[in-house]
Amino acid sequence: MGEITGTKETKKPVIAVGDGPAIPSKSDVGLFTAWRISFVSAIAIVAYLAISKPDPYLAILKFVPDGILVTFQVTIEAILLALVIGLFTGLGRISKNRFINGIASIYVEVIRGIPLLVQLFYIYFALGRVVNLPAMVSAVIAMAVCYGAYMGEIFRAGIEAVHSGQMEAARSLGMTSSQAMMHVILPQAFKTILPPIGNEFVALLKDSSLVSILAVSDLLRRGREFAAESFTYFETYTMVALIYLIITLFLSKLVSIMEERISVD
């Protein structure tokens, strides 16, 4: 997540490295065709392998769909929880109450400073000694707590991007700050934060492969199980990688279409 903080004429080149996939936009012809080439070839390769060498490729394709469902389950549950956490974190970060603001800011700093894998271990194994959470629940909580911090920053930026006059107009009509937030500010902020949230969703889906170490049978875990039995490591991980690629390319395309629609409005 790069932030542009150029002031006056001194424009420094800004290198923004996001952890989401690049959104192919129509103006960027290179990226646009790169997306097509990758997406079509990935599907073509999967189809070719499954037809030309059904053993083991077709067998792998038949074995992993359970895992794809689990991957989606973890991703969707985690993103929903992360949205809730992110909303409150974002509101906390702009709060004038020093205590609330402090808590939200510390949460963001701490979480962003700890690798997701370590957080997963921490919630499942370290906290597991106190409260025994099922692997799936730990996985969702860890992912949501981690992504909630990033979401918080997205919400904060989205809320701050709404012109301050909107809040003043709402307050001058007698609305409380929460009424103004709910009816005036958030609906407008939502438009700007929808694309970055979509990107976080894709990034979270990729990161969800980390939960396989907690014995959650997601796509990667299912692949590992298959490979361990058949000793077809190369073939299995090739298929797993291609399936991840097809899913993320498809989703990132959806995000870019959504972004386009919003900018047209």
Partner: peptide, 12 residues
Amino acid sequence: GMVFQSFNVFPH
């Protein structure tokens, strides 16, 4: 009632 220089109507 207050009316602002920049209107501040709700665009959504």
